[in-house]
């Protein structure tokens, strides 16, 4: 199967591999997995006080397409607000990397990882804000 140059580049030189402290303020962690191929993906975002994603890291166990998809989205989410990050669609990921049809689920995984990370971040912020709101 012929893979695109972009896909191979992200696979061979993945960007932003690693982890942030899970409990750190401003960090949202998304964990997702694809049963079809057993891929597991962890995507973390670090959000600044202005609500913009400053940094992102990922760790993925899976095929080349899953690694490339997660590497790509760590680049894409940087500099975006949470709502903008949520607008990233799997079709855009698949198109950018020219994923073959059998690998579309890898881009779904990456989209869902962003959603899960944003949700985790918002949940953490919510639980931190709630006591103050009660006190007011």
């Amino acid at each position: 199967m012929a893979y695109s140059d972009k896909l191979l580049d992200h696979y061979e030189n993945p960007r932003n591999v690693g982890s942030f402290g899970k409990e750190d303020d401003g960090v949202g962690t998304g964990m997702v997995g694809a049963p079809a191929c057993g891929d597991v993906m962890k995507l973390q975002i670090k959000v600044g006080p202005d609500g913009v994603i400053e940094d992102a890291k990922f760790k993925t166990y899976g095929c080349g397409s899953a690694i490339a998809s997660s590497s790509l989205v760590t680049e894409w989410v940087k500099g975006k607000t949470l709502d903008q990050a949520l607008e990233i669609k799997n079709t855009a990921i698949a198109e950018e990397l020219a994923l073959p049809p059998v690998k579309i689920h890898c881009s779904i995984l990456a989209e869902d990882a962003i959603k899960a990370a944003v949700e985790d971040y918002r949940k953490k912020q919510g639980t931190q804000v709630a006591p103050a709101a009660d006190a007011a």
Binding site: M31, V32, G33, A34, P35, V40, K42
Partner: peptide, 22 residues
């Protein structure tokens, strides 16, 4: 349909376990 292709929301502790095994 078990959703093998598109159901990605596995329980977090299970995925952590998978990561550890990997």
């Amino acid at each position: 349909d078990v959703g093998a292709e598109n159901n990605t929301a596995m329980p977090a502790d299970f995925l952590m376990q998978q990561m550890a095994w990997r």
